[in-house]
Amino acid sequence: MTGEELLDLAAKQAALGELAGAPADDPVNVPMIRHWLAAMGDRNPVYLDRGLAPPAMAQVWTMTAPAPGDRSPVSVMMGALDEAGYTGVVATNCEQTYHRYVRVGELLTPATRFTGLAGPKRTALGEGFFATWVVTWYAGEGEPVAEMLFRVLKFRPPEKRAEPYPLRPSVNRDTAFFWDGVRRGELRVQSCADCGELRHPPGPMCPRCHSANRAHVVARGEGVVYSYVVHHHPPVPGRETPFVVAVVELPEGVRIVGNVVDCPPESVAVGMPVRVAYRPMDDELVLPVWTPGEP
């Protein structure tokens, strides 16, 4: 439903006016009052001494389990909002008015009136509608003893983002070029801008000529397993064990550590051809991993 259609439906539900519900299953009784007083820490003796119920208990006497097929105006409206994607709900305010004390032995009957829908509105929780209804409790021959205005915000929850992957690489001035390449689908290997020596892991100085001038080349993304371990224990956050960690030798002459995926751990072997792949671990992090390649 569109927002306009939801507002039209709300107007129709409000036009139905107050609709009476079923009488309470049990009359106002002492055991329930005693339980309420104990739960609330209320030691006022007037209730049990005079056979009166605390006014705030009004809703307790007529509460029932949700009934399948309930087509009350409130249920119809809440269902329509759910179907339109406004599945989040939070109570925003509740105002109760008490006309008199309810006495032990009285049987209460609730009546509900849907009063309106306001929105759509932007809130901190997301876009939503404020739905309001009023419940009135009657005793005897229709004497109102209490009423409650209840308002909720039905909002559209934001799209759930993936949980951040807990094992995040350290990115600094020496390694930023490598992770920039991974995000672009490139396996970059640091090189010396003076003598051309390749090195991995990246570092601030060339081990051959000691130059601090750095560049990089893009590797083909193919290699062979030089050595590996199968990790079983201890548990690693964000990973299911067992998994393979391998040292992969590239034809460019350097070795890179990474996980071997998309195959059972027992199928991994030294000399196994592998090819690089890039796996999103969460909304921000991409890691290079190794998959079985062509022999």
Rank of each mutant, 00 (worst) to 15 (best):
T132H: 14
D70C: 09
V102I: 15
P166V: 08
P157L: 13
H35G: 04
P201F: 13
E106F: 02
A212E: 14
C206Q: 04
E143S: 06
A131V: 07
V244H: 05
L167T: 00
G238Y: 02
G119E: 07
V261F: 09
D8A: 15
D70T: 02
T62M: 00
A91S: 13
Y165R: 02
D283G: 08
L167S: 01
A91K: 03
R208L: 12
R103W: 03
V60A: 11
E284Y: 05
G140E: 09
P27H: 06
A15K: 07
T62C: 02
A193C: 00
R50D: 09
A56R: 06
E186K: 12
R255Q: 14
W61Y: 01
G21H: 10
E159K: 14
V289F: 02
A219R: 08
M272T: 04
V254H: 02
E186M: 10
R173V: 12
R34I: 10
F155Q: 05
H35M: 10
L250A: 07
H35D: 11
P73R: 10
D8I: 06
P280G: 00
M63Q: 15
E284D: 13
V182Q: 09
L48S: 03
L125F: 14
F177R: 12
R188Y: 07
K12G: 07
K154V: 00
H35P: 00
E83P: 00
V104Q: 13
N44L: 01
P204T: 02
L107G: 01
Q190S: 07
L7N: 02
E240R: 13
C192V: 09
L250K: 06
V104D: 05
H99C: 10
M40Q: 15
M148W: 00
E284P: 04
G258P: 12
F150Y: 13
V46P: 00
T97L: 08
A10R: 13
P235Q: 05
R184K: 15
R161V: 10
